[in-house]
Design a protein around this nucleic acid. Structure first.
Lengths: 334, 334
DNA sequence: GACCCCTGTCGAAGCGCTTCGACGAAGGAA
DNA sequence: TTCCTTCGTCGAAGCGCTTCGACAGGGGTC
């Protein structure tokens, strides 16, 4: 193993100079810096992570807590994770994977052992049991998602309320008068995950404002056909739906087709989901992007600022961005 | 922060004694050990990960390289990952998440900086470009999946060849004479991922042995309907299919239903996939389990043995385990 | 010219832990 | 009784890095 003293000897300087040349924490002459860099390259030097963490009181690792529960859409979670890892690497950090199963203990452990120096927590519930811990733990933390009381925490997420509104308003502009929201599975509402409820609020508020008739349907994975039939039965005037359930989007569009409803001629469909998903459905879906890449990136960047000691806003709501595709059109008055 | 010297003082022993009491590397009297444990509990001591890594030359972290490419089934990947994390924790290790995007450089980096002390690599291709590196890197490594030449590497996976055979043999026992394999998307074959090809080999060999007519169809996600129609057109005597494509299983069964084929009355369906998936389809599918939990667990355990210096077998093939469900039945002679 | 202040570098201390060698006490073998 | 082990513990060294204080030299300023 090549160490800093080897580099120092080769470059004809002291180890501390090598360290400063690397970190830039003290001025080093251009010429010396060059010699140090050459030596590093020639020897293939890589600082020892443990030694660095011990002396520098920074591990350059951050922990990502991923959810594993019923009702979550795994590919979406993975998109967040990949974005977090990629962004973290750009900031010279690595990512430790924690499962939600480890719970609060896991957080305490990685904090106490100084294994990581910051935390990203996904899938936060309105009254998440980990919140008190996160407030006392003095590790910089960013939540992806909003709890009921985000005071004193840094949160980032899509503005789901506005996203729900945007979908309805889009349908309103197209002349639709009766809309339905196909939501997440019931268990997501039961455990009071914020984003699901926020969509409902935005959806309902916007529909009421526009004087539309509306209904909300939490929906299990696999129940596409049932829900489609129920919708036609109970809300015959329906011409617009908003889908906020990744797993159900494709099957639901298929079910409508099977029931003889043409999209968008008979029914306009919008969704809140990642773009890739919206584009991969049989009829490309007009959607509000779930900006996984952007949210993951923002989360890491907020964390980096906090590690620098810079103040950051408590809440970052990414505004909805709607992309019109083939699944929506003007209401055709029969 | 409470450190080992604090514990030592409180317990009335030297720091080295605390260390030995913790690691068990030297005999410590029962009474002393008790005092040390009490002190640890009272003070809430947690050893500093960096210091431990530096002095002990072990970080107790292992790296998991996850694939992110087209054609992979993300929930399945996630199952492996969760199993790896869970098992690693049981062995007092944490897991660092690396994306395949980082490639060989990422592996070199975490190895050189001593950030991790072992590697798990998923989604290995037959001629994976990372293999030479993995062979020279002197980090204990386990591959999930088999390359073309696994010599000198430790690999673990489901025995996909036997899995393909098992499916066909099951159908043969039920009297079926004409079978088809619905495989992974073409890109998976193009990049020569081993497991896909092994299934094809097993499938074909078993069909030939039984004198069945057979065909193989790599298949895109979303092409369920097309493939179902093609099958009926080109292979009218078909009564048994094997599905080795997680994303397609549900849609395919739906497509058969739409085409008027009853499962299992007209068509027996078997699959190679995680049990949860087989059970969540409209008709529960007779399947060979993709034992993600077991494979992840084995991978970690092999790694732990290698870290101990114990020799381990180069290849671990998990034998297929078939569960009969509602989707298969005797061929009904028309 | 005296003073101060940068700039660029060095040496040494120390981060919190593990491990090695040493050593007293106790027990067995001779 | 003497000598050799083994058990249980301690002190010190050292893992590879960062950082602090010190200091030499070269300008400015007055």
């Amino acid at each position: 193993m090549v160490k800093i003293t080897d580099v120092a000897r080769r470059a004809g300087v002291s180890p501390s100079t090598v360290s400063y040349a690397l970190s830039g924490k003290r001025p080093i002459s251009e010429e010396t810096r060059q010699r140090v860099e050459d030596a590093i390259r020639e020897l293939g030097y890589r600082p020892h992570a443990g030694a660095r963490a011990l002396a520098g009181r920074r591990s350059n690792v951050l922990a990502l807590v991923v959810p594993l529960r019923a009702g979550i859409h795994v590919p979406t979670v993975m998109r967040f994770a990949v974005s977090v890892v990629t962004t973290a690497r750009r900031h010279d950090h690595d990512v430790l994977l924690l499962t939600q199963e480890e719970g609060a203990d896991g957080l305490t452990r990685v904090a106490d052992t100084a294994l990581v120096d910051a935390l990203i927590v996904m899938d936060v519930q309105l009254d998440d049991p980990r919140l008190p811990l996160l407030r006392t733990l003095d590790l910089p933390t960013v939540l992806i998602g909003f709890p009921a009381s985000p005071q004193g925490l840094t949160c980032v997420d899509l503005d789901f309320r506005a996203a729900g509104e945007a979908c309805v308003e889009h349908l309103a502009r197209l002349g639709h008068r009766s809309v339905a929201l196909i939501g997440s599975p019931p268990e997501v509402y039961v455990r009071r995950t914020a984003f699901a409820q926020r969509v409902v609020q935005g959806f309902t508020a916007a529909a009421d404002r526009s004087g539309m008739s509306s209904s909300v349907h939490p929906c299990e994975t696999g129940a596409a056909r049932e829900v489609a039939e129920q919708l036609l039965r109970e809300q015959p005037a329906l011409t617009g739906v908003v889908v906020h359930n990744e797993a159900l989007l494709g099957p639901l569009v298929d079910a409508f087709a099977d029931l003889g409803l043409r999209v968008p001629a008979d029914l306009s469909v919008t969704a809140i989901c990642p773009d890739e998903l919206a584009e991969s459905v049989r009829v490309p879906i007009t959607s509000v992007t779930l900006p996984t890449a952007e949210v993951g990136e923002r989360a890491v960047e907020l964390l980096m600022k906090k590690l620098d000691g810079t103040a950051v806003p408590e809440s970052t709501l990414v505004p909805p961005r709607m992309t019109e595709r083939a699944s929506t059109g003007r209401r055709t008055v029969p």
